[in-house]
């Protein structure tokens, strides 16, 4: 099966797989970045994606999401400088009301038509429904694992390959050991480095929530009966919101998570506008709720830096 890449949790993998492609979550393992075609004051993840996709291997194309200025400009740049790559931009609404759901359902229908066409196939709704059922089984298995309390560093390692993870992968995830560790919320944008989570765990913490783009942000269930596009649109727009969405649930969601932990680690790639603005709200929430906050900014590097290690250690020593 040929690979088709994606970068955001708002992309329904059911459609990619239904069209006969293998969905591949793009998290380049190399920290190499493209600096000539995009300004240096640009998201390092986007620049790493561009470096990776200038000369793509083993993928037919990529679906990007209208999630940020970085991705929109990546879409423009790829179409111009990687002409052999099929690129699609999914216009995901920022709202989740009925009008937004109806609009997104139409967007998914168009995407599906394009993607099936790319594989020279007619759109097969039964195949799509079948994939929805298949992914629901995976989601169920994953949520059962979450109930049992897995080691989040390992969860992140598995989730980096895609959400929901394959059932076989879940079996390899060990459960948390000793009790009495300091509960921590790991929130933010893309967390590319599972060592950060391991470092939190090694410092005496327990990552209770992985509220990051590469973490637990997918829908928990997609309705199986009825119009598959409408069901997918509904499920993906109602999933745990990210800071890009205009959803009052986001703040209450943060509040609820903060209330259940003793400290917050906020992780963002540099120049991530959505999350750097959210930092203002998060700081205020943490101040009001009396929780310490550590903000880590990364330059997209799958290996943890020594500075970051020291900061995490210091955070635990001083505050937790």
């Amino acid at each position: 099966m040929r690979g088709f890449a994606y970068c955001c949790t708002y992309v329904p993998l059911e459609i990619i797989e239904g069209a006969g492609f293998k969905p591949l979550r793009l998290l380049p393992s190399s920290p190499e970045k493209e600096d000539a075609l995009l300004d240096p004051n640009f998201c390092p993840y986007v620049r790493a994606l561009l470096a990776h996709l200038r000369f793509p291997q083993e993928i037919v194309g990529v679906v990007l999401v209208n999630c940020c200025d970085g991705m929109r400009r990546l879409y423009d740049t790829l179409r111009r400088f990687s002409p052999n790559l099929s690129v699609y931009l999914l216009d995901v609404p920022r709202k989740s009301d009925q009008e937004a759901v109806a609009y997104f359902a139409n967007i998914l229908r168009d995407f599906s038509l394009w993607l099936f066409g790319l594989n020279r196939r007619e759109v097969d709704l039964e195949e799509l429904r079948d994939k929805i059922r298949f992914y629901n089984r995976r989601r169920k298995a994953f949520s059962e694992l979450l109930q049992r309390g897995p080691k989040m560093g390992e969860v992140l390692r598995v989730l980096k390959k895609g959400f929901p993870p394959e059932e076989g992968e879940l079996l390899k995830i060990p459960l948390k050991g000793e009790k009495g560790r300091k509960k921590v919320l790991l929130s933010g944008s893309l967390l590319e480095c599972e060592e950060v989570v391991r470092m939190v765990e090694d410092s005496g913490g327990e990552a209770v929530f992985l509220d990051v783009c590469s973490g637990v942000r997918g829908p928990s269930f997609v309705e199986e009966k009825g119009d598959p596009y409408l069901n997918l649109a509904q499920a993906y727009l109602k999933k745990p919101p990210c800071s890009r969405s205009f959803d009052p649930k986001r703040k209450s969601f943060l509040e609820k998570m903060i209330s259940e932990v003793e400290g917050v680690v906020f992780y963002t790639p540099k120049f991530c506008d959505h999350y750097l603005h959210e930092l203002v709200t998060l700081r205020e929430l943490c101040r009001k709720m009396g929780r310490p906050l550590l903000h880590l900014e990364s330059d997209y590097n799958p290996i943890i830096s020594e500075t970051m290690r020291t900061r995490i250690q210091a955070f635990f020593e001083k505050w937790l």
């Binding site: 000539a36 075609l37 995009l38 004051n41 998201c43 940020c68 929109r72 400009r73």
Partner: peptide, 18 residues
């Protein structure tokens, strides 16, 4: 003019330049 902190406009600067 590539204003620091502006991703929307500066992101297109190379393509426009080309």
């Amino acid at each position: 003019f590539s204003h620091w902190g502006c991703r929307q406009s500066t992101g297109g600067a190379s393509i426009v330049g080309e």
